[in-house]
Simulated assay, not measured.
Amino acid sequence: MAPTFLILLGAAVALGADVRPDKNYRVNPPGNVTAEVQGSRLHVRWEKPVSAFPGHCFEYEVRLHNTRKQYFQTEKMTTNEFTTTVHDISKYCIKVRAAVSSVCREGGLWGEWSPAISVGNEAQKSWTEWYPITLVAALCLAFVSSLACRTCHVWTKLFPPVPGPKSHIQDFAATVNYEVRPRSFRCVPPARVGPPGSHT
């Protein structure tokens, strides 16, 4: 058993791997990290760190940074690929790091992050792409508004009918009755005026 360990240790040293018997050593960052956006899906892949441990002995952390919204997301996994849903007008900065899992030995410390890679596009959509969406939304809003106004009689509540001006044409067409009625008068005798001081 000892010769096998020496051969593995010698091969690891020759390859530049970081195998140490200490449980607290940090593994190298994962290699060959690649990422691509297909529609609204982001696919990230990487290779295991250079190490004497086999691929199933590693745990990984993937960190996504949405540079447009300043949002960070960190995911843990045991496979060497990661897929998530993203916004198509955002740029993402991606890093991956590894640690030896407790499956192969007592858990180790997380290694360094891999160099950051960027994917995505921060360019805004041109107005020609937004125009059909805006037009359809405006038509739908107009239709719903007119339907609501008709069913709730909103127009008559907001804009009550204004009475029209009085027509004077009807006054000219009306027949005026000029018959004179005799008035009855009551005769009142005139008051007598006498010398001052005399009352009758």
Rank of each mutant, 00 (worst) to 15 (best):
R183N: 06
K95A: 15
W155Y: 05
D88T: 10
R20C: 15
V19L: 15
Q170P: 02
N121Y: 03
R150L: 05
Q70S: 15
W46Y: 11
S146C: 07
P165H: 04
P132S: 00
R183I: 06
E36Q: 12
L42I: 03
P182Y: 04
V44G: 14
P189V: 01
G120T: 02
Y178F: 08
V136H: 00
A138Y: 04
V27M: 15
T34I: 07
I117K: 02
C93K: 12
R68F: 15
V33N: 10
W113R: 00
E129I: 01
S114L: 04
H65R: 08
P160V: 02
G111P: 14
G108P: 07
V180G: 08
V154I: 06
N32G: 14
S184P: 14
K48I: 04
V37T: 07
V162N: 04
T67H: 07
E122I: 04
Y71Q: 10
P195L: 10
V180L: 12
R183M: 07
T85Q: 11
E36D: 11
K157V: 02
R150P: 02
Y131V: 04
H168Q: 01
R192E: 13
E122D: 15
A2P: 14
C104L: 05
C93V: 10
S40F: 11
G31N: 05
S118D: 10
T4S: 09
E75N: 11
P115E: 09
R45W: 08
K23V: 07
N177H: 02
E75K: 02
L139G: 08
G197K: 03
N28Y: 12
C57D: 07
Y60F: 15
Q170E: 07
P132T: 00
H87Y: 11
P132C: 09
T84N: 13
V44N: 11
D88C: 13
G197R: 02
T128C: 11
W46T: 03
L42H: 06
V13N: 14
N177F: 05
G197T: 03
I89Q: 14
A52Y: 03
R192Y: 10
W127N: 00
N177Y: 02
G39Y: 08
C149V: 03
V154N: 01
